[in-house]
């Protein structure tokens, strides 16, 4: 399981569309070989097919696809967008914080979802993620890797 490790985090990434933002977060997983190169395509396909339901809280998107779309290991990356992007979810737009989930079918899937919920279930953490200036501050929020 790889959860918001240093190479899986990018702050203030430029994206002009939801698809850009999804691909930016997905690419971090690809580069670490946690998912196959086509996984971001599957994430974008899901967005186009099912809509922006994965914008699951104000400013927070959790794009993902299925385990069989090329997930090698349960993983979560994080991209903070330089400018907020509209995903088409009226209740929670615009999106600033994008967490790409490499959804695995292993037991680690549940564990990694619980880690994510622990982080994002605390609104103080969410506020902090909007303003942190480097990885070390994020590492403190998640309790170290």
């Amino acid at each position: 399981m790889k959860f918001l490790e240093k190479n899986l985090v990018a702050l203030d990434v430029a994206a002009t569309s939801a698809e850009d933002a999804i691909r930016a977060a997905g690419q971090l997983l690809v580069e670490e070989k946690l998912v196959e190169a086509h996984y971001p395509d599957a994430m974008v396909d899901s967005y186009k097919t099912n809509g922006p339901y994965f914008v699951l809280a104000p400013q927070i998107a959790l794009p993902h696809a299925r385990p069989e779309d090329g997930v090698n290991e349960a993983s979560v990356s994080f991209v903070r967008l330089r400018e907020p992007v509209v995903f088409g979810n009226p209740a929670n737009d615009p999106v600033t914080l994008v967490f790409a989930l490499g959804a695995s079918s292993s037991d680690e899937h549940l564990q990694i979802i619980q880690k994510l919920m622990k982080l994002l279930g605390d609104s103080a953490n969410v506020e902090a993620l909007k303003t942190v200036s480097n990885y070390e501050e994020i590492n403190l929020l998640i309790g170290g890797n």
Binding site: S46, L56, L62, H64, A65, R66, A103, H109, I113
Partner: peptide
């Protein structure tokens, strides 16, 4: 319920 039944709906389920 979510689009894929993988991540989003699992979070919702645990909070429900």
């Amino acid at each position: 319920v979510c689009g894929l039944g993988q991540g989003t709906s699992l979070i919702l389920r645990m909070n429900v």
